[in-house]
Write a protein that binds this DNA or RNA. Structure first.
Lengths: 148, 148
DNA sequence: GGTTGACAGTTAGAGTTCAAACTATTAAAG
DNA sequence: CTTTAATAGTTTGAACTCTAACTGTCAACC
């Protein structure tokens, strides 16, 4: 990852565990903006980690380089992101959210926090800590999905 | 669901929570047979719940009726399942795994148990019980994804 | 310098998913 | 009996995912 910890890391981790998030509140927020869930996460990540490499995004979303490539194509076509070849390595592309993209995604982290709150509602504070600890423990030994 | 509890319910529930199962051992088992993960689950479910309605499958996989429809098309084309219109309701189709399908999927539950064991390896028995309880608690208040 | 291998990203093709619009059947209401 | 609404399933189109094969760049080693 690119150093700083994105604000919505917690929600994102949780959403990974909870596949059912598909049908939940996040959808409405996202649909109003004509963004897919995946596009939203990528865009939000780019606002908080400007200049990330596509490889970073693949790692963050735990998908493949190919997926990121096509995902970003859609965002680029709509002018929400930019890909620049800069720095030393001519292979890697630095990805940035455009002002339009940043404006569109503003408030996403708050919406994700609300969603997380909804999902965790049945658990008290202690239980949440326990759940997080257990999931982290399991996660730690799982291999990375991007094995290219 | 259709009364009886499929053997691999536990694994399936776990896989729902653990999106990362995508890249794990189950893949190999499944790839040898040229089945996708989703096809495998559907076929395994049908072996243990012969004559299920497509609606049952949608509920089990927590996807939509449309998804099941296209999923089964692939399996039917390969002769692994059959869809029969029988019983009272002419709308519903009873789905059965063919002998070829049942043979192809044999051992899937064992493979899934192995996979589950791998994923849960870092947790002791007590922790597994706790994790399951917490996930169940969260699950209980989540809406069903198929809302058609 | 030239070869070899790793790495960043893309493309093509198949499979899955969803929403929305559609057929056909069943049930409920009038 | 007729109309209306719900249900089971399909189809279409768009988006995402993956694997496999590909281009282009960088690094290491001879």
């Amino acid at each position: 990852m690119s150093g700083t910890e994105p604000q919505f890391t917690t929600s994102l981790e949780l959403l990974r565990w909870i596949g059912w998030a598909q049908m939940m509140a996040g959808q409405d927020w996202v649909r109003e903006r004509d963004l897919s869930r995946e596009q939203s996460f990528a865009l939000g990540f780019l606002v908080q980690n400007p200049g990330s490499m596509q490889r970073d995004i693949a790692e963050m979303t735990r998908t493949s380089a190919a997926s990121v490539s096509s995902l970003l194509q859609g965002l680029e076509k709509r002018g929400l992101i930019e890909r620049r070849i800069g720095g030393g390595d001519q292979r890697s592309k630095r990805v940035y959210a455009t002002p339009a993209g940043a404006e569109l995604i503003a408030g996403f982290d708050i919406a994700m926090n609300d969603l997380e709150e909804k999902i965790l509602a049945p658990l008290d504070e202690q239980e949440r800590v326990t759940l997080h600890a257990l999931l982290t423990k399991v996660t730690s030994v799982l291999p990375q999905p991007t094995r290219d």
